[in-house]
Simulated scan of single mutants.
Amino acid sequence: MELKVNIASTALVVIDLQKGIVGLQGAPYATSDVVSRCAELAKVFREHEGFVVLVHVGSRDGKDMLHPITDAAPQAPMNRPADFADFVTELQVQPTDHLVTKHQWGAFFGTDLDLQLRRRSIDTIVLCGIATNIGVETTAREAYQRQYQQIFVSDAMTGLSEIEHDHTLRYIFPRIGRIRTTEQVVNAIE
């Protein structure tokens, strides 16, 4: 099926390309490659007057974040550098970008993302960022439950491991949207 991206009703949503996360080891793509592709997508969306949403995760004291009892090792304490939540400079944040601060994995819960998309008559989101199976997948599931059409940019996202990335792309995303590359999305913008 040929992809067409109507820029008037489509938003680019970039997940967690912030200084405290892009330093992690990504797989199967290096985080630097993901940053470069997401920056390219943001540039093209802006050139076509599209809506760009940049999402980052942050907390002042950690009290607004989730703290479940889990079998996995606990997350690192909140001793994060002051610039942990700052967007990477390669994104070249613009005044027209909508910035979303989330306090858990997904970008919809507890934020104004859904409201801002609906006010602009957005019905489709192009989703990319880090990590494929955490922030990107949770946001995708939330968007699916809100009836958004979705395009997942497979080479503009990466997981913390190749297995996690591949699982999401193979088993989750095909059920809730379309999977394309950066080049395919850029070439489909109308």
Rank of each mutant, 00 (worst) to 15 (best):
D71V: 13
D71G: 15
A72D: 13
A72W: 08
A72L: 13
A72E: 12
A72I: 11
A73N: 07
A73V: 13
A73L: 09
P74E: 07
P74H: 08
P74G: 08
P74C: 09
Q75V: 12
Q75T: 13
A76K: 14
A76Q: 13
A76H: 12
P77A: 11
P77W: 14
R80Y: 11
P81M: 02
P81H: 03
A82F: 06
A82I: 13
D83I: 12
D83L: 07
D83N: 13
D83S: 06
F84C: 05
F84D: 11
A85C: 09
A85W: 00
A85I: 05
A85R: 03
D86N: 11
D86I: 08
D86H: 09
D86E: 14
F87R: 02
F87K: 00
V88G: 06
T89E: 15
T89D: 15
E90I: 10
E90D: 11
E90K: 03
E90M: 03
L91A: 03
L91P: 02
L91R: 00
L91V: 03
Q92L: 11
Q92G: 11
V93T: 09
V93I: 04
V93R: 00
V93D: 00
Q94H: 15
Q94F: 12
Q94P: 07
P95N: 09
P95W: 07
T96D: 09
T96Q: 09
D97I: 06
H98D: 07
L99I: 14
V100G: 02
V100M: 06
T101Q: 13
K102P: 03
K102W: 05
H103F: 04
H103I: 06
H103D: 01
H103W: 05
Q104V: 13
Q104E: 15
W105I: 07
W105H: 10
G106E: 07
G106V: 07
G106L: 07
G106K: 05
A107S: 10
A107L: 02
A107P: 01
F108W: 00
F108D: 00
F109L: 09
F109P: 05
G110R: 03
G110F: 02
T111M: 00
T111A: 00
T111C: 00
T111I: 01
D112Y: 10
D112E: 14
L113M: 09
L113P: 05
L113H: 03
D114H: 05
D114I: 04
L115D: 14
L115N: 10
Q116V: 13
L117E: 04
R118M: 02
R118F: 06
R118H: 04
R118W: 01
R119V: 08
R120C: 08
R120E: 08
R120I: 10
S121N: 15
I122H: 01
I122F: 02
D123L: 03
D123W: 02
T124R: 06
T124K: 09
I125Q: 04
I125Y: 05
I125A: 06
